[in-house]
Design a protein around this nucleic acid. Structure first.
Length: 932
RNA sequence: GGGCCCAUAGCUCAGCGGUAGAGUGCCUCCUUUGCAAGGAGGAUGCCCUGGGUUCGAAUCCCAGUGGGUCCA
């Protein structure tokens, strides 16, 4: 077994006269030009040495520093590329947010399947790390949003037998050049390169690993140089810090990260990073919140900030303890320090959070209850709480907009609209929650009990109310609340970890060995017949719907479109001279199209393929219509509209789009109109294979609506102004759609709306179905279709009025019966009288009659033979008979049951024929109950 | 992607197998006529939709629709 020590013996270090040392404090090995140096230079071994003593020649703003970095690397042979969105889930499904520049190139570029946009390249990539959220503002150095400046080089081993297997070849540069470039940058900025230390710190992550170097200057880690060159391998020769074994890869990648904010901070030497990065925002917020400091206070803040930078808040779990220690060192009162620092910390956090929101919303993330949208919602709500707590009265959308403007976003109106909508939603949630808590607090305060933990968890988990909010409100009502320290892990335990089902079917070995199928459907989308050779037939382990055996037939070429991109696979037939096999489904695995058929045409046979042309045409129309609808929706609702999913069928299709509000009827009609304008213009639908990096550079990230495909080339489908990477089949011109009809919308989740629509003959069919329903309703009401709404309303109103009238009449009837003589025979029970009567009416009438009798002071036993046998028994006040018991006994005789309160009960059973017998026994039952 | 919660009068909600309720708003009258006035009376419900269980469902079960919320 070997470790990575050898990997750090750089030619560059030798030539430049570096020495390798071991830090006596932390034990790390590092390289330095300074022979006298003992410590590694990284906190906590050493302190920040740049506060009030900047490490570069000049002070740089964020923008200036970014430009200095990018142009330095441009001057040294790197191509500058545009940053990617912060929503990393737009090109990979394993993460939500972009947390490092290398995320831009995972997994397709790093694995060598897709070429990088340039090589070598430099980028300043906006990143968001939610992990640090609690530290933001407090430590002086943590930010949630940051830009990772980077230079990357993608190398492939030069001694490979088959260099073509990767999308890039040969070595661009490796470790020596990387360190040299890094040091050159320091020199350019006027740093004292003698003071830089390079700490050996092997990197492991996501199945890859390699040597890495932390670059420390004046106590701050300014860069990390990662040399990704190994992959996890049980038989690998290197065992690394995660306990796994690794072996070298064919590709090796220079992955660097330079924190833009830290470099800017270093150049200014301000007490905290925030003052260096957001000077305008902080000045604005301070003024708005009315925060002013005397010179002595200012001095104290300055001294406290320096100490805050030294504290490792991650380890000092408890903020209060950390604060206490700082107060001790400064020899001031903790309360005084806290009163001074807390508003400032909140303002720092607000500035950072607003920038985070600007990135998220500007890049098209729509707040939601799921995915990245949920993270955006969390940040927004947290920010709103901070803004309220510190007393800033500027609307949140304005604060976010300030950052969006600075970052150069163009969709600022939409961003503001989203923020306003979200703030309003949050307000409603708080209001709802507040009422709920008040109710609970009152209840428990009355009983003098503390509000149980279960309730607190329920309030948070189901209603989104923070425990401290509950405490606040509860205190007003004098109710106690106990929130344990591990509250949030208790909540987490409520969400039992569901087992991940990995949907990967596992590709059959025989399929892997087959050559990729030639896809004829891209060459001519109108053709429906073809001839092919059967390369292999694999019997499916699972039977078809009717129990018959199914076979996966692989051909050398095919017209059958395999399921993909929301378009179902084609159906049709494969015929030899001897038999015709029905193709019920078509899938693709590893480049091989598998025709799932109900018969085995025989390996090596010639087959004539015929696809179901009508079905295919409908699917094609719906696929093109999906692009048209998506484009129309974006035009009508805004640029944040993106595809969140799609499914095409023969009768209709659906497109899920990201949107922060319900799509109302008016918007639906407008989208429908715009879509049909596109149809009437009869736009050409073109399909071409383009170099992916060119296409991405031309059309931007919005090109990829339905996921990111691998490869050097992408298939691009253009419909008018709409351009998308798409592998599906399409009609030639939009005119072939005939008409597009939106059938409805539904909310899939918060922030995602589903548009259901139909095109062509399907649009006609579905519209006719809706019309049929209307005509039928009109026919029933005996009016013309346009009169249906008014008539329906009138009928409904009348129906309700009639119901009320009937109620009234039943009451009157009941009273008349009770007072009139027809109320059966009276029965003397001694203390009271009773009436036993059969009255074939519904339950309402029975109840009314029994009540009326009871009000007259008579015990009432009424039985009905309508719909089985039912009884109602009413007992006046002061009579010692339990109505429930009487009913229970009577109902038992008709095969049922019953019950109710002692003064009024009802019941019944299915045996109507036993009703009269039961009523005859009723007087006996009453007497017995009275005696009991 | 998963979990949990909710749907009842115009509004806010209670009721959780046995005659649909409260507060507020609304209408009428009285007392008054100043800042959330007081008193008396009254009207207002497909208890979200569809199935099921039951003698009986607003109430229990299942599905759907609409909303809320937490987690990854």
């Amino acid at each position: 077994m070997s470790d990575l020590t050898e990997e750090y013996q750089l030619e560059y270090f030798r030539e430049e006269g570096f020495v390798r040392r071991e830090c006596p404090d932390c034990g790390d090995h590092f390289w330095t030009r300074d022979e006298e140096r003992e410590l590694c230079g990284e906190p906590p071994c050493e302190e920040y040495g740049f506060i009030d003593d900047p490490g570069f020649d000049e002070a740089y703003s964020l923008t200036e520093m970014r430009e200095a970095f990018l142009s330095y690397f441009e001057d040294h042979g790197h191509e500058r590329i545009d940053p990617y969105p912060v929503a990393a889930n737009r090109w990979r499904d394993d993460v939500l947010l972009t947390q490092a520049s290398i995320y831009d190139f995972q997994p397709l570029v790093t694995s060598g399947r897709t070429p990088p946009p340039a090589n070598p390249l430099t980028v300043s990539q906006p990143c968001i790390r939610m992990q640090d959220i609690d530290n933001v503002g407090k430590t002086g150095r943590h930010t949630m949003a940051f830009e990772m400046m980077a230079h990357h080089a993608f190398n492939a081993r030069e001694d490979l037998e088959d260099p073509d297997q990767y999308a890039y070849e040969g070595e661009v540069y490796w470790k020596d050049r990387t360190v040299e470039l890094c040091e050159g940058l320091f020199e350019d900025l006027g740093a004292d390169i003698e003071a830089i230390t390079y700490i050996e710190d092997p990197w492991v992550g996501g199945g890859n690993a390699g040597p890495a170097i932390e670059v420390i200057y004046k106590g701050a880690e300014l860069a990390t140089l990662v040399f990704m060159s190994m992959e996890q391998d049980p038989d690998g020769e290197y065992e690394l810090k995660d306990g796994n074994r690794y072996s070298p890869m064919d590709t090796y990648i220079v992955d660097t990260g330079y924190g833009l904010e830290r470099w800017t901070w270093m150049s200014q030497g301000t007490p905290t990073v925030y003052e260096a990065v957001y000077p305008e925002a902080i000045a604005f917020l301070k003024e708005n919140a009315g925060i002013e400091h005397t010179d002595t206070q200012e001095d104290l803040i300055h001294r406290a900030a320096k100490l805050a930078g030294r504290m490792d808040i991650d380890e000092a779990e408890d903020m209060a303890t950390a604060r206490g220690e700082i107060a001790d060192r400064l020899d001031v009162d903790v309360e005084r320090l806290e009163a001074l620092m807390e508003p400032l910390e909140e303002i720092y956090a607000i500035a950072d959070h607003c920038r985070t929101l600007a990135y998220m919303l500007g890049d098209g993330i729509v707040p939601s209850n799921a995915g990245t949208g949920y993270l955006a919602r969390m940040v927004l709500r947290r920010t709103k709480r901070l803004v309220d707590s510190v007393g800033v009265d500027a609307p949140l959308d304005e604060l976010v907009d300030m950052q969006a403007e600075r970052l150069g976003y163009r969709n600022r109106d939409t961003v503001r609209d989203i923020v306003r909508t979200e703030v309003e939603k949050y307000r409603e949630t708080l209001e709802r929650g507040g009422r709920r808590v008040e109710g609970l607090a009152e209840e428990y305060a009355e009983r003098d009990d503390p509000i149980p933990l279960e309730e607190i968890i329920e309030l948070y988990d189901s209603h989104g109310i923070q425990p401290d909010t509950v405490e606040e409100i509860a205190a007003e009502y004098g109710a106690a609340v106990e929130v344990p320290d591990d509250f949030y892990s208790l909540v987490a335990s409520r969400h039992g970890g569901g087992a991940l089902d990995d949907g990967s079917e596992g590709v059959d070995d025989r399929v892997v060995d087959l050559p990729g199928t030639e896809k004829l459907f891209y060459e001519d989308q109108e053709r429906t017949e073809f001839e092919a050779v059967v390369l292999d037939v694999i019997e499916r382990p699972d039977a078809g719907e009717d129990g018959g055996t199914l076979y996966d037939v692989a051909l050398d070429q095919t017209m059958f479109y395999p399921e993909g991109g929301g378009q179902p696979g084609d159906t049709g037939t494969l015929a030899t001279d001897d038999l015709t096999a029905e193709v019920v489904d078509v899938q693709e695995a590893d480049g091989v199209v598998l025709h799932r058929a109900d018969a085995d045409p025989g390996k090596g046979e010639f087959v004539r393929g015929q696809i179901d042309a009508t079905r295919r045409r409908r699917l094609m129309r719906h696929h093109t219509a999906t692009h048209v609808i998506g484009h129309a929706a974006r035009e009508v609702l805004g640029d944040h509209i993106r595809q969140a999913g799609a499914q095409k069928g023969t009768e209709s299709a659906r497109l899920d789009v990201t949107h922060y509000d319900r799509i109302d009827r008016e918007a639906v009609k407008t989208i429908e109109r715009v879509a049909n304008d596109m149809v009437r213009e009869n736009l050409a639908v073109t399909q071409e294979w383009l170099d992916r990096n060119d296409a991405q550079a031309n059309y931007g990230f919005d090109l990829f609506q339905g996921g990111i495909p691998a490869g050097t080339e992408v298939r691009v489908v253009t419909v008018g102004d709409d351009v998308q990477a798409c592998a599906g089949t399409h009609v030639g011109r939009t005119g072939e759609l005939g008409a597009v009809k939106i059938l409805g919308t539904e909310r899939v989740q918060d922030g995602v709306e589903r548009l259901v629509f139909a095109a062509g003959d399907a649009a006609i069919t579905t519209t006719q179905r809706t019309e049929d329903a209307l005509y039928e309703a009109a026919d029933t009401l005996d009016v013309d279709p346009p009169a249906v709404p008014d008539t329906a309303e009138r009928f409904f109103e009348e129906w309700k009025a009639r119901g009320k009238r009937i109620e009234e009449l039943k009451e009157q009837l009941a009273e008349a019966r009770a007072q009139g003589g027809e109320s059966g025979e009276e029965l003397d029970l001694g203390d009271a009288t009773a009436v036993v009567q059969r009255l074939d009416a519904d339950m309402d009438e029975l109840r009314a009659t029994a009540n009326a009798l009871a009000e007259e002071g008579t015990v009432a036993v009424i039985g009905s033979g309508v719909d089985g046998a039912t009884f109602v028994v009413a007992v006046p006040d002061g009579v010692g008979i339990n109505a429930g018991e009487v009913v229970s006994e009577l109902a038992g005789r008709v095969g049922g049951g019953g019950g109710g309160p002692p003064d009024f009960a009802q019941g019944g059973g299915p045996e109507a024929e036993a009703l009269d017998d039961a009523l005859e026994d009723a007087p006996d039952v009453l007497r017995r109950k009275l005696e009991a």
